[in-house]
Simulated scan of single mutants.
Amino acid sequence: MKKITGVIIVFMLFIACKQTIQQNDITKIDGYWEITKVTFDKGKDKDYGMNETYDYFEIKDNKGIRKKVKPQLDGTYLVNDTYENVLVRFSDEGVFLDYDTPYMKWSEEIIKLSDEELVLINKEKTEYHYKKTEAINLLGDGKTIK
């Protein structure tokens, strides 16, 4: 009986700790995100110091794109025409980002989403931790960043 009670308590803690993503939270995804850490299924982490690329999300009405961009020292970004279509899907199991390219389709579940942090997990149980980022301007030339 004590074991069953312990399992129920642990299960309830797990459920209570999981963030519930609401429809109005999805707007927080828009913008530039820098990956900070990847946690693999076996519990090993790969930390990232500085990244050469950021992920840029633009989502409206649960549809949008994700593309890789390269920040420049003057606060601009190098971009190309390559992107992934993104569809936000709400289900009983969670909230998912469904990606679609001409070559592949895959999904990631949103585990955590705030103004400053995004955590996604894929079907291989690999977690991707992001932080919201802004343009870098190391030149200090006073120009307005677009």
Score class of each variant (00 low, 15 high):
D47K: 15
D81G: 04
L120A: 04
I4C: 04
D61Q: 14
F90W: 05
G43S: 07
D81C: 07
Y128Q: 05
V7E: 09
L113V: 05
Y56E: 15
L139Y: 14
E34D: 08
E34Q: 06
Q19P: 02
Y77C: 13
I65Y: 08
D55M: 04
D115L: 09
T5K: 02
D47E: 07
T20F: 09
L118F: 11
E52N: 15
K3Y: 15
D115C: 04
K44W: 08
K44S: 13
N80Q: 03
L139R: 07
W33R: 15
K131C: 00
N122E: 00
G75W: 01
G6R: 14
K44Q: 09
K37H: 05
E58P: 02
E109V: 02
K131S: 09
D141E: 14
D141I: 05
E116I: 02
E108V: 01
V7P: 02
I4D: 15
D100P: 03
T53H: 08
D74K: 00
Y77V: 06
K3M: 13
Y77E: 01
A135K: 08
I9F: 14
F11M: 12
F40H: 08
M50H: 14
G142Q: 08
K131I: 05
M50K: 12
K3I: 09
F57I: 02
T36A: 02
E58I: 08
D92Y: 07
K67M: 09
L87N: 13
G75D: 02
E52L: 14
E117P: 01
L138Q: 12
K146G: 12
V79T: 12
K125L: 08
F14Y: 07
V79S: 10
A135M: 11
G75I: 07
M12R: 03
K3R: 04
C17P: 00
E93T: 09
K112L: 09
Y54C: 09
L139M: 14
G64F: 12
K146V: 07
E108T: 08
I121A: 06
Q23R: 03
G64V: 04
S114Y: 06
E109D: 05
K112P: 00
E127F: 13
F57Y: 15
L73P: 04
V119H: 03
E93S: 13
T36S: 03
E93W: 03
K125E: 12
K146W: 12
G75V: 04
E34S: 07
W33M: 09
I111T: 10
T20L: 05
E58K: 15
G94Y: 13
Y103V: 09
F57E: 00
T5F: 13
H129R: 10
